[in-house]
Simulated scan of single mutants.
Amino acid sequence: MSGSCCGGGCSASKPVVDPVYRRVLLVALAVNAGMFLVEIVAGTAAGSVSLQADALDFLGDAANYVISLLVLGMALRWRARAALIKGVSLGVLGLWVAGQTLSNALAQTVPEAPVMGVVGLMALAANLGVAALLYAHRHGDANRQSVWICSRNDAIANVAVLAAAAGVFGTATGWPDIAVAAVIAGLSVSGAVRIVRQAAGELRPVAA
């Protein structure tokens, strides 16, 4: 099922809960919560703002999955409101990452490239697995699309973190790490805008 009842366009009636989608969300929640703990510890120890940014992205996604699980089976207006909350939260996260990136740029912090590489590979494997599970569920209402957008952004961010690790190793500077953190911040903000727009569009007919 790609959209609970009819592709996300079914008024405000309660959709049938997809048990497969529920199981996928539970797996994704466990993976993201675990990787948040791994990356926040490793990112802090290595002094890598891109790893810390990615860790917070994992945390945001874990919260995303919790909310999505809570609103499964609820009317469209509640799913749209949940998506709106997630979109705003994602935007705030992106702005926080942007601030941390600027701070590291001013401090000229040089992170530990080997740690970035190893943890980045772990995170990429985790996100590719989650994205593969969610690919079949990428269409539908704003709430469901928000789950897919966050997972897709994570996989892209992990590839960028690996590139940053190689760049830090090759240049012995923190600029590749800073550049990747800026990209992650941009992905978060742009994803937030898309989610908020669709959620607002779904709420307008309900209000009318």
Rank of each mutant, 00 (worst) to 15 (best):
residue 14 K to Q: 08
residue 31 V to R: 10
residue 153 N to L: 04
residue 187 L to M: 09
residue 71 V to K: 01
residue 2 S to K: 07
residue 199 A to H: 13
residue 48 S to Q: 10
residue 6 C to N: 15
residue 84 L to T: 01
residue 15 P to S: 15
residue 163 A to W: 10
residue 51 L to N: 04
residue 132 A to G: 11
residue 102 L to G: 13
residue 138 R to N: 00
residue 13 S to K: 11
residue 38 V to W: 12
residue 177 D to K: 02
residue 72 L to C: 12
residue 190 S to H: 05
residue 62 A to C: 02
residue 16 V to R: 08
residue 56 L to C: 04
residue 129 G to P: 04
residue 110 V to P: 03
residue 72 L to W: 13
residue 24 V to P: 01
residue 116 M to E: 06
residue 39 E to T: 07
residue 154 D to M: 04
residue 153 N to S: 11
residue 145 Q to T: 14
residue 96 W to F: 13
residue 75 A to D: 05
residue 26 L to E: 14
residue 1 M to G: 10
residue 25 L to Y: 10
residue 68 S to Q: 13
residue 91 G to W: 07
residue 72 L to N: 10
residue 33 A to H: 10
residue 114 P to D: 12
residue 145 Q to W: 08
residue 85 I to N: 14
residue 3 G to C: 11
residue 71 V to C: 01
residue 4 S to V: 15
residue 100 Q to A: 06
residue 59 L to H: 07
residue 137 H to V: 06
residue 140 G to P: 08
residue 4 S to C: 14
residue 41 V to S: 07
residue 184 I to W: 03
residue 158 N to W: 11
residue 97 V to Q: 09
residue 197 R to F: 01
residue 141 D to Q: 09
residue 179 A to I: 07
residue 172 A to K: 13
residue 131 A to R: 13
residue 51 L to T: 07
residue 123 A to G: 03
residue 165 A to Y: 02
residue 176 P to Q: 05
residue 161 V to E: 03
residue 95 L to T: 01
residue 49 V to E: 07
residue 168 V to N: 02
residue 58 F to E: 07
residue 100 Q to H: 04
residue 34 G to E: 05
residue 55 A to T: 08
residue 187 L to I: 08
residue 135 Y to A: 05
residue 47 G to E: 03
residue 174 G to K: 06
residue 158 N to H: 11
residue 32 N to Y: 09
residue 126 A to I: 06
residue 77 R to W: 08
residue 80 A to N: 15
residue 144 R to C: 01
residue 32 N to M: 08
residue 178 I to S: 00
residue 88 V to I: 15
residue 88 V to F: 14
residue 169 F to K: 12
residue 24 V to Y: 04
residue 138 R to A: 00
residue 155 A to M: 12
residue 44 T to I: 05
residue 129 G to K: 03
residue 83 A to H: 15
residue 169 F to E: 10
residue 131 A to V: 11
residue 11 S to V: 10
residue 170 G to F: 15
residue 11 S to Q: 10
residue 198 Q to N: 09
residue 134 L to V: 13
residue 203 L to P: 00
residue 149 I to S: 03
residue 196 V to I: 15
residue 181 A to E: 00
residue 186 G to H: 01
residue 105 A to P: 02
residue 112 E to F: 07
residue 180 V to F: 04
residue 77 R to E: 08
residue 148 W to Q: 01
residue 77 R to M: 07
residue 179 A to W: 04
residue 164 A to R: 12
residue 182 A to D: 06
residue 98 A to V: 07
residue 7 G to P: 00
residue 188 S to W: 00
residue 196 V to L: 14
residue 22 R to G: 01
residue 1 M to F: 10
residue 26 L to S: 06
residue 156 I to N: 07
residue 70 L to G: 11
residue 148 W to P: 00
residue 206 V to T: 05
residue 66 V to N: 12
residue 20 V to E: 10
residue 162 L to E: 05
residue 186 G to Y: 02
residue 195 I to Q: 06
residue 109 T to D: 06
residue 203 L to D: 00
residue 73 G to T: 05
residue 13 S to P: 02
residue 184 I to E: 02
residue 156 I to G: 00
residue 178 I to K: 00
residue 67 I to S: 15
residue 171 T to C: 07
residue 186 G to R: 01
residue 148 W to Y: 09
residue 86 K to C: 14
residue 101 T to C: 08
residue 96 W to L: 13
residue 147 V to L: 12
residue 203 L to N: 01
residue 189 V to K: 02
residue 192 A to N: 02
residue 36 F to H: 11
